[in-house]
Amino acid sequence: MKMFSVFIKTTLSVAFLFMGLTLCVHSANSDVIPPHSDIYAAAKTLSLNPPAPALPLYTHQSATEPYDPLEPFNRVVFEFNRVLEGLLFNPLVHIYRGVVPPFVQKRVHCVLNNLATPVYFLNDVLQCKLDHACESLTRFIINTTFGLLGLFDVASEVGLPPHTEDLGQTLATWGAEPGPYLVLPILGPTDFRGLLGMVGDFFADPFNYYAIHHDRRTLMDIRIAATYADERSHVLTMVENLEETSVDYYAALRSLYWQHKRAKVLHDKEFDDNDETNSAMDSDHPQPEED
């Protein structure tokens, strides 16, 4: 309970902080508030404009091709993971998917998503995406209360769909490069930026903070195992298909990872037609020839 109140206090202060931020940023950005108003002047003096959207500068080769100088090392770890997955993890995930009723699987997914929402919120704030930050915060509050500690995703029903955000992406919006591609034991494909983000997210997570400082590491282990089962159960069919059909599984997965990250960073959601960063994606694809 003590933890809970500490957390509420922190959330409250953060909420106030970014409420102020919202006002400042939006007043500086839009025409809702006339430019001569006091708030506008205050925002100007505080200079709380969001940073200009910084596109990561891909200096390594072409942007869509993965940068993988550690390939020999990565391939070894990749094979190790493949053996481990084939012998242990995949059968376990198959059991999870086959034995646990879909209803329970959905509840597990919802609880895990709710537990991760504070970190999404934090990253939304760090990225100055205030609409998303509001969404994340509201989602967390609604789902923790009305959704019975996250068991049910009530927020989605009232028009607040889930979205994910991580520190790796935050670093990317700040202009950090992905760095070399990296395959981690068990954890799988990532890059240097992603690894840094993973570590940061881990320690920023209130749940982990609680588990570490109150000696409840079992809770953390359960969460990690559940997250793995949940995430893998969604992609297992796809991963197995890819392994079967690809000629070079390592290269195929590497390209998928790299492009997926890049697309996320460029916010190429494709349903967002107002996105000017879209044009950055336009060049690298097959084109008609002049003949």
Partner: peptide
């Protein structure tokens, strides 16, 4: 999901 099938194939 933002991943080009042609680019993946080219990379592979």
């Amino acid at each position: 999901e933002g991943v080009s099938m042609s680019v993946t194939q080219r990379s592979e």
